[in-house]
Design a protein around this nucleic acid. Sequence first.
DNA 1: CACAAGTCTTATATAAGACAAAAGATATAC
DNA 2: GTATATCTTTTGTCTTATATAAGACTTGTG
Lengths: 244, 244
Amino acid sequence: MSKLAAQPLYRQVLREVMVAIEAGEWDEDESLPSETDLGKRFGVSQGTVRKALDVLVTDGVLYRRQGVGTFVAGTSDFLLRGQFLSLAGRDGVKPSVDLLGCVRIHAGEQLAEILGLRRGAALWQVRRLLRVEGQVIGLEEMLLPEANFPSLEIRRIRELKGNLRELCWRDFGVRLKDGEVRYRAVLAGQTEARLLMMDVNEPLLQLVRLARDFDGKPQVWSVAWLRTEQLAFEPPAQFGAQAG
Amino acid sequence: MSKLAAQPLYRQVLREVMVAIEAGEWDEDESLPSETDLGKRFGVSQGTVRKALDVLVTDGVLYRRQGVGTFVAGTSDFLLRGQFLSLAGRDGVKPSVDLLGCVRIHAGEQLAEILGLRRGAALWQVRRLLRVEGQVIGLEEMLLPEANFPSLEIRRIRELKGNLRELCWRDFGVRLKDGEVRYRAVLAGQTEARLLMMDVNEPLLQLVRLARDFDGKPQVWSVAWLRTEQLAFEPPAQFGAQAG
DNA sequence: CACAAGTCTTATATAAGACAAAAGATATAC
DNA sequence: GTATATCTTTTGTCTTATATAAGACTTGTG
Protein backbone atom coordinates (compact mmCIF):
# COMPACT_ATOMS: atom_id res chain seq x y z
CA MET A 1 0.00 0.00 0.00
CA SER A 2 1.41 3.39 -0.95
CA LYS A 3 2.82 5.25 2.02
CA LEU A 4 2.57 8.77 0.72
CA ALA A 5 -0.91 9.51 1.90
CA ALA A 6 -1.38 11.11 5.27
CA GLN A 7 -4.52 9.10 5.72
CA PRO A 8 -5.15 6.16 8.04
CA LEU A 9 -4.39 2.81 6.45
CA TYR A 10 -7.96 1.63 6.62
CA ARG A 11 -9.08 4.69 4.66
CA GLN A 12 -6.61 3.91 1.92
CA VAL A 13 -7.84 0.32 1.84
CA LEU A 14 -11.40 1.60 1.77
CA ARG A 15 -10.56 3.73 -1.22
CA GLU A 16 -8.81 0.90 -3.07
CA VAL A 17 -11.69 -1.48 -2.49
CA MET A 18 -14.13 1.16 -3.66
CA VAL A 19 -12.09 1.68 -6.81
CA ALA A 20 -12.02 -2.06 -7.44
CA ILE A 21 -15.78 -2.25 -7.05
CA GLU A 22 -16.21 0.67 -9.40
CA ALA A 23 -13.93 -1.05 -11.88
CA GLY A 24 -16.31 -3.99 -11.75
CA GLU A 25 -13.72 -6.35 -10.33
CA TRP A 26 -16.48 -8.19 -8.50
CA ASP A 27 -20.04 -8.39 -9.72
CA GLU A 28 -23.15 -7.72 -7.77
CA ASP A 29 -23.73 -10.36 -5.09
CA GLU A 30 -20.33 -11.82 -5.85
CA SER A 31 -18.10 -12.40 -2.88
CA LEU A 32 -14.92 -10.40 -2.41
CA PRO A 33 -11.71 -12.19 -1.49
CA SER A 34 -11.59 -13.03 2.20
CA GLU A 35 -10.50 -10.31 4.60
CA THR A 36 -7.25 -12.21 5.08
CA ASP A 37 -6.53 -12.31 1.35
CA LEU A 38 -7.39 -8.66 0.90
CA GLY A 39 -5.03 -7.98 3.78
CA LYS A 40 -2.22 -9.77 1.94
CA ARG A 41 -3.00 -7.90 -1.25
CA PHE A 42 -2.82 -4.49 0.38
CA GLY A 43 -0.12 -5.41 2.86
CA VAL A 44 -2.20 -4.81 5.96
CA SER A 45 -3.73 -6.98 8.64
CA GLN A 46 -7.11 -8.66 8.45
CA GLY A 47 -8.41 -6.32 11.16
CA THR A 48 -7.55 -3.27 9.10
CA VAL A 49 -9.31 -4.64 6.05
CA ARG A 50 -12.22 -5.41 8.30
CA LYS A 51 -12.42 -1.85 9.52
CA ALA A 52 -12.48 -0.59 5.96
CA LEU A 53 -15.19 -3.05 4.98
CA ASP A 54 -17.17 -2.07 8.07
CA VAL A 55 -17.61 1.38 6.63
CA LEU A 56 -18.71 0.04 3.27
CA VAL A 57 -21.14 -2.30 4.98
CA THR A 58 -22.77 0.49 6.96
CA ASP A 59 -22.82 2.53 3.77
CA GLY A 60 -24.74 -0.28 2.14
CA VAL A 61 -22.12 -0.94 -0.52
CA LEU A 62 -21.32 -4.41 0.84
CA TYR A 63 -23.02 -6.99 2.98
CA ARG A 64 -21.62 -9.87 5.00
CA ARG A 65 -22.53 -13.39 6.00
CA GLN A 66 -20.52 -14.89 8.80
CA GLY A 67 -18.58 -17.96 7.81
CA VAL A 68 -19.40 -17.35 4.15
CA GLY A 69 -18.03 -14.11 2.84
CA THR A 70 -18.49 -10.45 2.03
CA PHE A 71 -20.54 -9.50 -1.01
CA VAL A 72 -21.14 -6.55 -3.26
CA ALA A 73 -24.57 -5.21 -2.47
CA GLY A 74 -27.01 -4.78 -5.29
CA THR A 75 -27.00 -1.20 -6.49
CA SER A 76 -30.62 -0.85 -5.60
CA ASP A 77 -32.46 1.88 -7.28
CA PHE A 78 -33.10 5.42 -6.24
CA LEU A 79 -36.09 6.33 -4.25
CA LEU A 80 -37.16 2.74 -4.50
CA ARG A 81 -35.03 2.00 -1.53
CA GLY A 82 -37.71 1.90 1.04
CA GLN A 83 -40.94 0.02 1.03
CA PHE A 84 -44.67 0.42 1.21
CA LEU A 85 -46.67 -0.74 4.19
CA SER A 86 -50.36 -1.22 4.53
CA LEU A 87 -51.67 1.21 7.10
CA ALA A 88 -52.19 -1.36 9.81
CA GLY A 89 -49.87 -4.17 8.74
CA ARG A 90 -46.22 -4.70 9.44
CA ASP A 91 -44.92 -6.43 6.35
CA GLY A 92 -43.83 -4.16 3.55
CA VAL A 93 -43.76 -4.60 -0.19
CA LYS A 94 -41.40 -3.28 -2.82
CA PRO A 95 -43.02 -1.80 -5.89
CA SER A 96 -42.39 -2.94 -9.44
CA VAL A 97 -41.19 -0.42 -12.00
CA ASP A 98 -42.32 0.52 -15.51
CA LEU A 99 -40.23 2.79 -17.65
CA LEU A 100 -42.35 5.51 -19.20
CA GLY A 101 -39.81 7.35 -21.27
CA CYS A 102 -36.55 9.20 -21.58
CA VAL A 103 -36.46 12.60 -23.23
CA ARG A 104 -34.01 15.45 -23.61
CA ILE A 105 -34.96 18.74 -21.94
CA HIS A 106 -33.24 21.91 -20.81
CA ALA A 107 -32.42 22.97 -17.29
CA GLY A 108 -34.30 25.80 -15.68
CA GLU A 109 -32.43 28.32 -13.59
CA GLN A 110 -32.92 26.63 -10.23
CA LEU A 111 -32.17 23.15 -11.43
CA ALA A 112 -29.08 24.33 -13.27
CA GLU A 113 -27.76 25.88 -10.10
CA ILE A 114 -28.45 22.79 -8.03
CA LEU A 115 -26.67 20.52 -10.50
CA GLY A 116 -23.86 22.97 -11.01
CA LEU A 117 -24.62 23.59 -14.68
CA ARG A 118 -25.13 26.66 -16.76
CA ARG A 119 -28.68 27.70 -17.40
CA GLY A 120 -30.34 25.86 -20.26
CA ALA A 121 -27.91 22.95 -20.16
CA ALA A 122 -29.21 19.75 -21.72
CA LEU A 123 -30.70 17.18 -19.34
CA TRP A 124 -32.13 13.72 -19.65
CA GLN A 125 -35.55 13.34 -18.09
CA VAL A 126 -36.40 9.75 -17.24
CA ARG A 127 -39.84 8.87 -15.98
CA ARG A 128 -40.98 5.67 -14.34
CA LEU A 129 -44.19 4.34 -12.94
CA LEU A 130 -44.32 2.38 -9.68
CA ARG A 131 -46.83 -0.37 -9.11
CA VAL A 132 -47.85 -2.49 -6.16
CA GLU A 133 -49.98 -5.49 -7.05
CA GLY A 134 -50.79 -3.97 -10.40
CA GLN A 135 -52.10 -0.76 -8.85
CA VAL A 136 -50.28 2.38 -9.96
CA ILE A 137 -48.89 3.86 -6.81
CA GLY A 138 -46.19 6.29 -7.79
CA LEU A 139 -44.44 8.33 -10.44
CA GLU A 140 -40.73 8.91 -10.43
CA GLU A 141 -38.79 11.45 -12.44
CA MET A 142 -35.03 11.68 -12.73
CA LEU A 143 -32.93 14.41 -14.29
CA LEU A 144 -29.35 13.79 -15.39
CA PRO A 145 -26.92 16.21 -17.05
CA GLU A 146 -26.34 15.14 -20.64
CA ALA A 147 -22.72 16.22 -20.28
CA ASN A 148 -22.05 13.44 -17.78
CA PHE A 149 -24.26 10.83 -19.39
CA PRO A 150 -23.85 11.55 -23.10
CA SER A 151 -25.54 8.58 -24.71
CA LEU A 152 -28.38 7.64 -22.44
CA GLU A 153 -30.63 5.32 -24.41
CA ILE A 154 -34.01 4.07 -23.40
CA ARG A 155 -33.14 0.67 -24.83
CA ARG A 156 -30.19 0.40 -22.50
CA ILE A 157 -32.27 1.51 -19.54
CA ARG A 158 -34.74 -1.25 -20.34
CA GLU A 159 -31.90 -3.75 -20.54
CA LEU A 160 -30.97 -2.99 -16.96
CA LYS A 161 -34.62 -3.22 -15.93
CA GLY A 162 -34.84 0.49 -15.36
CA ASN A 163 -32.15 0.49 -12.72
CA LEU A 164 -30.60 3.85 -13.47
CA ARG A 165 -28.24 3.64 -10.58
CA GLU A 166 -26.70 0.51 -11.99
CA LEU A 167 -26.57 2.07 -15.43
CA CYS A 168 -24.84 5.18 -14.19
CA TRP A 169 -21.79 3.35 -13.07
CA ARG A 170 -21.77 0.52 -15.54
CA ASP A 171 -21.92 2.70 -18.60
CA PHE A 172 -20.58 6.01 -17.33
CA GLY A 173 -18.43 5.09 -14.34
CA VAL A 174 -20.43 7.26 -11.98
CA ARG A 175 -21.10 5.56 -8.66
CA LEU A 176 -23.94 7.33 -6.95
CA LYS A 177 -24.24 7.91 -3.27
CA ASP A 178 -27.67 8.62 -1.89
CA GLY A 179 -28.30 12.10 -0.66
CA GLU A 180 -30.85 13.19 1.86
CA VAL A 181 -34.48 12.99 0.86
CA ARG A 182 -36.89 15.86 1.41
CA TYR A 183 -40.54 15.21 1.95
CA ARG A 184 -43.56 17.30 1.09
CA ALA A 185 -47.26 16.80 0.71
CA VAL A 186 -48.67 18.25 -2.49
CA LEU A 187 -51.87 18.14 -4.49
CA ALA A 188 -51.97 16.21 -7.72
CA GLY A 189 -51.75 18.44 -10.79
CA GLN A 190 -52.91 17.62 -14.30
CA THR A 191 -49.83 15.67 -15.27
CA GLU A 192 -49.58 13.66 -12.10
CA ALA A 193 -53.28 12.91 -12.04
CA ARG A 194 -53.20 11.64 -15.59
CA LEU A 195 -50.15 9.44 -15.15
CA LEU A 196 -51.19 8.15 -11.76
CA MET A 197 -54.77 7.63 -12.86
CA MET A 198 -56.28 9.67 -10.09
CA ASP A 199 -58.20 12.90 -9.62
CA VAL A 200 -56.53 16.28 -9.42
CA ASN A 201 -56.27 17.83 -5.96
CA GLU A 202 -55.84 14.49 -4.31
CA PRO A 203 -52.90 14.46 -1.88
CA LEU A 204 -49.55 13.08 -2.99
CA LEU A 205 -46.41 12.39 -1.03
CA GLN A 206 -43.51 14.06 -2.78
CA LEU A 207 -39.91 12.91 -2.32
CA VAL A 208 -37.02 14.94 -3.64
CA ARG A 209 -33.40 13.85 -3.66
CA LEU A 210 -30.11 15.05 -5.03
CA ALA A 211 -27.76 12.13 -5.62
CA ARG A 212 -24.05 12.86 -5.70
CA ASP A 213 -21.14 10.70 -6.73
CA PHE A 214 -18.50 9.63 -4.22
CA ASP A 215 -16.56 12.81 -4.95
CA GLY A 216 -19.48 14.93 -3.83
CA LYS A 217 -20.37 16.21 -7.28
CA PRO A 218 -24.13 16.54 -7.89
CA GLN A 219 -25.24 14.05 -10.52
CA VAL A 220 -28.91 13.16 -10.46
CA TRP A 221 -31.92 15.14 -9.33
CA SER A 222 -34.95 13.01 -8.71
CA VAL A 223 -38.51 13.60 -7.65
CA ALA A 224 -41.17 11.04 -6.86
CA TRP A 225 -44.89 11.41 -6.29
CA LEU A 226 -46.52 8.65 -4.27
CA ARG A 227 -50.13 7.81 -3.61
CA THR A 228 -50.56 6.98 0.05
CA GLU A 229 -54.27 6.44 0.45
CA GLN A 230 -53.81 2.71 1.00
CA LEU A 231 -50.13 2.37 1.75
CA ALA A 232 -47.57 4.34 3.74
CA PHE A 233 -44.00 4.86 2.65
CA GLU A 234 -41.15 3.73 4.88
CA PRO A 235 -37.60 4.71 4.01
CA PRO A 236 -34.92 2.02 4.23
CA ALA A 237 -33.71 1.09 7.68
CA GLN A 238 -30.37 2.63 8.40
CA PHE A 239 -27.68 0.27 9.47
CA GLY A 240 -25.21 0.36 12.32
CA ALA A 241 -25.04 -2.60 14.65
CA GLN A 242 -28.33 -3.22 16.39
CA ALA A 243 -28.23 -2.29 20.04
CA GLY A 244 -29.51 -4.50 22.84
CA MET B 1 -17.64 -8.50 33.85
CA SER B 2 -19.97 -11.41 34.57
CA LYS B 3 -19.07 -14.45 32.53
CA LEU B 4 -22.43 -16.14 32.54
CA ALA B 5 -23.84 -14.56 29.42
CA ALA B 6 -23.35 -16.26 26.07
CA GLN B 7 -23.02 -12.84 24.48
CA PRO B 8 -19.91 -11.16 23.12
CA LEU B 9 -18.10 -9.12 25.72
CA TYR B 10 -18.67 -5.84 23.95
CA ARG B 11 -22.42 -6.47 23.99
CA GLN B 12 -22.32 -6.98 27.73
CA VAL B 13 -20.34 -3.79 28.13
CA LEU B 14 -22.81 -2.02 25.84
CA ARG B 15 -25.63 -3.17 28.07
CA GLU B 16 -23.89 -2.08 31.26
CA VAL B 17 -23.08 1.33 29.87
CA MET B 18 -26.65 1.72 28.72
CA VAL B 19 -27.91 0.80 32.17
CA ALA B 20 -25.55 3.32 33.72
CA ILE B 21 -26.79 6.02 31.37
CA GLU B 22 -30.36 5.11 32.17
CA ALA B 23 -29.55 5.27 35.86
CA GLY B 24 -28.41 8.82 35.26
CA GLU B 25 -24.82 8.10 36.25
CA TRP B 26 -23.68 10.73 33.77
CA ASP B 27 -25.73 13.75 32.79
CA GLU B 28 -26.42 15.00 29.34
CA ASP B 29 -23.27 16.37 27.69
CA GLU B 30 -21.23 15.08 30.61
CA SER B 31 -18.22 13.01 29.68
CA LEU B 32 -18.05 9.32 30.53
CA PRO B 33 -14.91 7.93 32.12
CA SER B 34 -12.20 7.30 29.54
CA GLU B 35 -12.35 4.13 27.50
CA THR B 36 -9.37 2.86 29.47
CA ASP B 37 -11.08 3.46 32.80
CA LEU B 38 -14.30 1.88 31.66
CA GLY B 39 -12.21 -1.06 30.55
CA LYS B 40 -10.76 -1.40 34.05
CA ARG B 41 -14.19 -1.13 35.58
CA PHE B 42 -15.64 -3.91 33.45
CA GLY B 43 -12.48 -5.96 33.29
CA VAL B 44 -12.03 -5.69 29.52
CA SER B 45 -9.61 -3.90 27.25
CA GLN B 46 -9.97 -0.37 25.93
CA GLY B 47 -10.65 -1.73 22.44
CA THR B 48 -13.62 -3.72 23.65
CA VAL B 49 -15.09 -0.74 25.42
CA ARG B 50 -14.50 1.23 22.26
CA LYS B 51 -16.44 -1.25 20.18
CA ALA B 52 -19.37 -1.02 22.58
CA LEU B 53 -19.29 2.77 22.51
CA ASP B 54 -19.09 2.69 18.71
CA VAL B 55 -22.55 1.20 18.63
CA LEU B 56 -23.93 3.79 21.03
CA VAL B 57 -22.33 6.56 18.99
CA THR B 58 -23.90 5.40 15.74
CA ASP B 59 -27.17 5.00 17.65
CA GLY B 60 -26.89 8.63 18.63
CA VAL B 61 -26.79 7.91 22.36
CA LEU B 62 -23.22 9.18 22.71
CA TYR B 63 -20.89 11.46 20.83
CA ARG B 64 -17.12 11.72 20.86
CA ARG B 65 -14.41 14.33 20.55
CA GLN B 66 -10.94 13.05 19.90
CA GLY B 67 -8.48 13.92 22.61
CA VAL B 68 -11.29 15.12 24.84
CA GLY B 69 -13.78 12.43 25.71
CA THR B 70 -17.05 10.67 25.08
CA PHE B 71 -20.28 12.38 26.03
CA VAL B 72 -23.90 11.57 26.62
CA ALA B 73 -25.89 12.93 23.72
CA GLY B 74 -28.83 15.15 24.41
CA THR B 75 -32.08 13.21 24.28
CA SER B 76 -33.44 15.21 21.41
CA ASP B 77 -37.11 15.08 20.88
CA PHE B 78 -39.26 12.82 18.79
CA LEU B 79 -40.23 13.69 15.30
CA LEU B 80 -38.48 16.94 15.82
CA ARG B 81 -35.30 15.23 14.88
CA GLY B 82 -35.10 16.43 11.37
CA GLN B 83 -35.37 19.91 10.04
CA PHE B 84 -37.28 22.10 7.67
CA LEU B 85 -35.78 23.47 4.50
CA SER B 86 -37.00 26.18 2.25
CA LEU B 87 -37.80 24.69 -1.11
CA ALA B 88 -34.78 26.11 -2.86
CA GLY B 89 -32.40 26.75 0.01
CA ARG B 90 -29.93 24.47 1.66
CA ASP B 91 -29.86 25.63 5.27
CA GLY B 92 -32.48 24.08 7.48
CA VAL B 93 -34.29 25.34 10.54
CA LYS B 94 -35.52 23.50 13.60
CA PRO B 95 -39.03 24.37 14.70
CA SER B 96 -39.98 25.68 18.12
CA VAL B 97 -42.54 23.79 20.15
CA ASP B 98 -45.69 24.81 22.01
CA LEU B 99 -47.43 22.39 24.28
CA LEU B 100 -51.15 22.33 23.59
CA GLY B 101 -52.36 19.88 26.20
CA CYS B 102 -52.22 16.49 27.80
CA VAL B 103 -55.43 14.51 28.27
CA ARG B 104 -56.39 10.98 29.25
CA ILE B 105 -58.10 8.91 26.55
CA HIS B 106 -58.78 5.26 25.85
CA ALA B 107 -57.12 3.04 23.29
CA GLY B 108 -59.01 1.93 20.24
CA GLU B 109 -58.63 -1.61 19.02
CA GLN B 110 -55.84 -0.99 16.54
CA LEU B 111 -53.80 1.24 18.79
CA ALA B 112 -54.19 -1.18 21.69
CA GLU B 113 -52.80 -3.97 19.58
CA ILE B 114 -49.88 -1.90 18.34
CA LEU B 115 -48.91 -0.87 21.85
CA GLY B 116 -49.51 -4.34 23.24
CA LEU B 117 -52.34 -3.29 25.52
CA ARG B 118 -55.86 -4.53 26.11
CA ARG B 119 -58.59 -2.70 24.28
CA GLY B 120 -59.75 0.43 26.04
CA ALA B 121 -56.58 0.79 28.10
CA ALA B 122 -55.91 4.29 29.38
CA LEU B 123 -53.54 6.45 27.35
CA TRP B 124 -52.09 9.90 27.66
CA GLN B 125 -52.58 12.04 24.60
CA VAL B 126 -50.08 14.87 24.35
CA ARG B 127 -50.38 17.47 21.63
CA ARG B 128 -47.83 20.01 20.53
CA LEU B 129 -47.68 22.72 17.96
CA LEU B 130 -44.60 23.33 15.84
CA ARG B 131 -43.63 26.78 14.68
CA VAL B 132 -41.02 28.18 12.33
CA GLU B 133 -40.53 31.90 12.60
CA GLY B 134 -43.85 32.27 14.34
CA GLN B 135 -45.73 30.50 11.57
CA VAL B 136 -47.60 27.39 12.65
CA ILE B 137 -46.15 24.60 10.60
CA GLY B 138 -47.05 21.36 12.29
CA LEU B 139 -49.08 19.47 14.84
CA GLU B 140 -47.71 16.56 16.78
CA GLU B 141 -49.63 14.04 18.81
CA MET B 142 -48.18 11.44 21.10
CA LEU B 143 -49.90 8.55 22.83
CA LEU B 144 -48.40 6.87 25.89
CA PRO B 145 -49.82 4.01 27.95
CA GLU B 146 -50.86 5.28 31.37
CA ALA B 147 -49.65 2.00 32.87
CA ASN B 148 -46.04 2.83 32.00
CA PHE B 149 -46.26 6.55 32.67
CA PRO B 150 -48.64 6.74 35.61
CA SER B 151 -48.35 10.35 36.68
CA LEU B 152 -47.76 12.33 33.52
CA GLU B 153 -48.36 15.95 34.36
CA ILE B 154 -48.56 18.85 31.98
CA ARG B 155 -46.65 20.97 34.46
CA ARG B 156 -43.75 18.57 34.38
CA ILE B 157 -43.81 18.43 30.59
CA ARG B 158 -43.58 22.21 30.53
CA GLU B 159 -40.67 22.07 32.94
CA LEU B 160 -38.70 19.99 30.48
CA LYS B 161 -39.71 22.32 27.68
CA GLY B 162 -41.99 19.76 26.09
CA ASN B 163 -39.22 17.24 25.61
CA LEU B 164 -41.19 14.07 26.20
CA ARG B 165 -38.28 11.87 25.36
CA GLU B 166 -36.25 13.37 28.15
CA LEU B 167 -39.18 13.12 30.50
CA CYS B 168 -39.78 9.47 29.72
CA TRP B 169 -36.48 8.37 31.06
CA ARG B 170 -35.94 10.98 33.72
CA ASP B 171 -39.24 10.39 35.46
CA PHE B 172 -40.11 6.87 34.38
CA GLY B 173 -36.80 5.25 33.51
CA VAL B 174 -37.88 4.48 29.99
CA ARG B 175 -35.17 5.23 27.44
CA LEU B 176 -36.73 5.47 24.03
CA LYS B 177 -35.17 4.32 20.84
CA ASP B 178 -36.49 5.76 17.63
CA GLY B 179 -38.46 3.45 15.42
CA GLU B 180 -38.93 3.77 11.71
CA VAL B 181 -41.07 6.61 10.47
CA ARG B 182 -43.82 6.09 7.92
CA TYR B 183 -44.83 8.87 5.59
CA ARG B 184 -48.15 9.65 4.00
CA ALA B 185 -49.81 12.59 2.32
CA VAL B 186 -53.27 13.35 3.67
CA LEU B 187 -55.84 16.10 3.45
CA ALA B 188 -56.42 18.33 6.42
CA GLY B 189 -59.56 17.45 8.35
CA GLN B 190 -61.57 19.70 10.65
CA THR B 191 -59.33 19.24 13.67
CA GLU B 192 -56.04 19.64 11.84
CA ALA B 193 -57.27 22.63 9.88
CA ARG B 194 -58.39 24.39 13.04
CA LEU B 195 -55.21 23.74 15.00
CA LEU B 196 -52.92 24.46 12.09
CA MET B 197 -54.90 27.52 11.03
CA MET B 198 -55.44 26.39 7.48
CA ASP B 199 -58.26 25.28 5.21
CA VAL B 200 -59.62 21.77 5.14
CA ASN B 201 -58.57 19.64 2.16
CA GLU B 202 -55.17 21.23 1.98
CA PRO B 203 -52.40 18.66 1.76
CA LEU B 204 -50.48 17.66 4.88
CA LEU B 205 -47.42 15.52 5.31
CA GLN B 206 -48.16 12.88 7.90
CA LEU B 207 -45.41 11.14 9.89
CA VAL B 208 -46.16 8.13 12.03
CA ARG B 209 -43.74 6.44 14.38
CA LEU B 210 -43.76 3.78 17.02
CA ALA B 211 -41.01 4.37 19.57
CA ARG B 212 -39.79 1.39 21.57
CA ASP B 213 -37.55 1.18 24.60
CA PHE B 214 -34.19 -0.55 24.44
CA ASP B 215 -35.84 -3.86 25.26
CA GLY B 216 -38.01 -3.62 22.17
CA LYS B 217 -41.24 -2.97 24.03
CA PRO B 218 -43.56 -0.50 22.29
CA GLN B 219 -43.88 2.64 24.34
CA VAL B 220 -44.98 5.70 22.45
CA TRP B 221 -47.10 6.06 19.35
CA SER B 222 -46.75 9.41 17.68
CA VAL B 223 -48.24 11.12 14.68
CA ALA B 224 -47.31 14.46 13.21
CA TRP B 225 -49.01 16.56 10.56
CA LEU B 226 -46.80 19.03 8.76
CA ARG B 227 -47.57 21.88 6.40
CA THR B 228 -45.15 21.80 3.52
CA GLU B 229 -46.32 24.55 1.23
CA GLN B 230 -43.29 26.70 2.03
CA LEU B 231 -40.87 24.27 3.61
CA ALA B 232 -39.87 20.67 3.00
CA PHE B 233 -39.14 18.19 5.76
CA GLU B 234 -35.76 16.47 5.92
CA PRO B 235 -35.21 13.64 8.37
CA PRO B 236 -32.01 13.64 10.43
CA ALA B 237 -28.86 12.47 8.70
CA GLN B 238 -27.96 8.97 9.71
CA PHE B 239 -24.52 8.40 11.02
CA GLY B 240 -21.96 5.76 10.22
CA ALA B 241 -18.43 6.74 9.35
CA GLN B 242 -18.33 8.97 6.34
CA ALA B 243 -16.92 7.27 3.27
CA GLY B 244 -14.05 8.79 1.44
C1' DC C 1 3.80 40.91 33.74
C1' DA C 2 2.10 39.36 29.02
C1' DC C 3 2.38 36.20 25.65
C1' DA C 4 3.85 32.73 22.78
C1' DA C 5 6.22 28.34 22.00
C1' DG C 6 7.27 24.07 23.67
C1' DT C 7 6.10 19.57 26.36
C1' DC C 8 3.26 16.79 29.41
C1' DT C 9 -0.87 14.41 30.24
C1' DT C 10 -4.88 12.24 28.99
C1' DA C 11 -8.14 11.33 25.70
C1' DT C 12 -9.66 8.92 21.46
C1' DA C 13 -8.04 6.57 17.01
C1' DT C 14 -5.63 3.08 14.47
C1' DA C 15 -3.16 -1.32 13.63
C1' DA C 16 -1.80 -5.98 14.12
C1' DG C 17 -2.21 -10.53 15.68
C1' DA C 18 -4.34 -14.31 18.28
C1' DC C 19 -8.26 -16.70 18.86
C1' DA C 20 -13.48 -17.88 18.69
C1' DA C 21 -17.72 -18.96 16.23
C1' DA C 22 -20.37 -20.00 12.13
C1' DA C 23 -21.32 -22.14 7.80
C1' DG C 24 -20.49 -25.34 4.28
C1' DA C 25 -18.16 -29.24 2.41
C1' DT C 26 -16.40 -33.60 3.06
C1' DA C 27 -15.59 -37.73 5.12
C1' DT C 28 -17.10 -41.49 8.22
C1' DA C 29 -20.02 -44.70 10.94
C1' DC C 30 -23.83 -47.34 11.03
C1' DG D 1 -28.43 -44.26 2.20
C1' DT D 2 -28.55 -41.26 5.89
C1' DA D 3 -27.24 -39.12 9.85
C1' DT D 4 -23.22 -37.43 12.33
C1' DA D 5 -18.71 -36.01 13.02
C1' DT D 6 -14.66 -33.30 11.49
C1' DC D 7 -12.20 -30.26 8.54
C1' DT D 8 -11.60 -25.87 6.18
C1' DT D 9 -12.64 -21.33 5.22
C1' DT D 10 -14.73 -17.33 6.45
C1' DT D 11 -16.29 -13.59 9.39
C1' DG D 12 -16.39 -12.04 14.33
C1' DT D 13 -14.26 -10.84 18.81
C1' DC D 14 -10.67 -9.35 21.88
C1' DT D 15 -6.20 -7.71 23.51
C1' DT D 16 -1.92 -5.21 23.18
C1' DA D 17 0.76 -1.70 21.29
C1' DT D 18 1.22 2.59 19.25
C1' DA D 19 -0.32 6.98 16.88
C1' DT D 20 -2.75 11.28 16.94
C1' DA D 21 -5.42 15.15 18.93
C1' DA D 22 -6.60 18.48 22.44
C1' DG D 23 -5.90 20.98 26.55
C1' DA D 24 -3.29 22.24 30.51
C1' DC D 25 0.93 23.49 32.13
C1' DT D 26 5.54 25.18 31.91
C1' DT D 27 8.98 27.91 30.46
C1' DG D 28 11.46 31.28 27.75
C1' DT D 29 11.46 36.00 26.25
C1' DG D 30 10.14 40.74 25.40
